[in-house]
């Protein structure tokens, strides 16, 4: 129904044909509320701008349509924090391995919430 063009971003979806709306408000999981608080605190303290996070979400390309809302926002925050030098890929990977060990989660485990498996480098 809408124009497509070379630079159309995956977030630019106004006017796309789509299915019925799930009208129930499902609320948020604990980690999602915590992730939201993290993003909100970082923007309020000036470490990152909302515009930068939106742009990083748009740069997810094909993955944008495969991820849930908080997976998108978490991916975007990761990209910008690395871009701005607040952390490195290596640091993040090491910390994620550390957390997995704490929760006793093997790398290969499929969680019911996972849509596409994020490749740990």
């Amino acid at each position: 129904m809408t124009d497509t063009h070379a630079h159309k971003l995956p977030s630019d979806i106004g006017g796309n044909e789509a299915g019925p709306v799930d009208t129930i408000d499902h609320g948020m999981r604990f980690w999602e509320r915590q992730a939201n608080a993290l993003r909100s605190t970082l923007t309020r303290k000036g470490f990152v701008k909302t515009d930068e996070l939106r742009r990083a979400a748009e740069e997810l390309g094909d993955r944008y349509s495969q991820l849930h809302y908080f997976e998108i926002t978490t991916s975007a925050l990761r990209a910008i924090m690395i871009e701005k030098g607040h952390m490195t890929e290596a640091e993040l990977k090491a910390k994620m391995d550390d957390i997995r060990a704490r929760f006793n989660v093997p790398d290969e485990m499929e969680s019911p919430i996972k849509k596409g498996k994020a490749q740990s480098t």
Binding site: L38, F70, I113, K114, A118
Partner: peptide, 10 residues
């Protein structure tokens, strides 16, 4: 999930 772990890690 991977993203929960990522968020906690960050």
């Amino acid at each position: 999930s991977e993203y929960e772990i990522m968020s906690r890690a960050m």
